[in-house]
Design a protein around this nucleic acid. Structure first.
Lengths: 114, 114
DNA sequence: TTGACAGGTAGGAAATCCCCTACCTATCGT
DNA sequence: ACGATAGGTAGGGGATTTCCTACCTGTCAA
């Protein structure tokens, strides 16, 4: 046990911490639900390794699988990402303030811009 | 080297993958800029361990430090979180669709709700 | 039924992460 | 100058991650 513990939020952030897994999410988003092999084609990695990444994504609730014959169709499940956005929200005013500062800075020295 | 590689996006997601680090961000957001010891008081962890977390956050651009006498005041730098939100954005319609489905489902069986 | 295909699980190696204690530097107060 | 305080770095240990190869199960096609 170790997979059993960890808050769901924790599992989502951990799942997103790997670029292969983020790329899988992008592929499912852009190309729609697809079997493992179609995903695996995009990676220079043994298929079982990708299987493990899919397991991490499944346990984070970020993908679901549907068996279809001998294939398993993976599908994006974006709901947990809404939680990430919720987590992000209270920080938003901080980066907006920063953008405003940067904008004001640019306004004060508009001399040699292209 | 290893810190040198890794795309900045990668470093931000990796930094967020740890709950202690997310808590540090929350403390800086809610309580404002503060020295290391003030942060350390919230954790049941040796101070050097927290120092390492702060280093990870610094290298992800999520905090900055300002030396003030013998203290170092850490401050939230939220700009990299804007990139996370940008990353999140193309997924938004997926979870919104899902919310709609769930709403419709609830509408279709409104019988025994409190 | 038998072989090929899709994909998961087992087990292990190397790298990384997360925590520790020990130690170092820099600044402040006396 | 000296001790105390703030906080970083060094080095190490155990847990976890990320990859691999080998192997297993389930399904389809001949």
């Amino acid at each position: 046990m170790a997979t059993t513990s960890a808050a769901p939020e924790d599992r989502v952030f951990a799942a997103l911490a790997n670029s292969t897994r983020r790329e899988v999410l992008r592929l499912l988003r852009e190309d729609g639900p697809q079997p493992v092999q179609a995903l695996a084609d995009h990676f220079d990695m043994a298929r079982p390794s990708l299987s493990e990444h899919l397991k991490v994504l499944r346990e984070a609730g970020l993908v679901s699988e549907e068996r279809q014959g001998r294939q398993r169709i993976y599908r994006l499940e974006a709901l947990p990402l809404a939680e990430v956005q919720d987590w992000l929200h209270p920080y938003e005013r901080f980066w907006r303030d920063k953008f405003k500062e940067l904008g004001a800075l640019l306004d004060r020295l508009p001399d040699d811009e292209a």
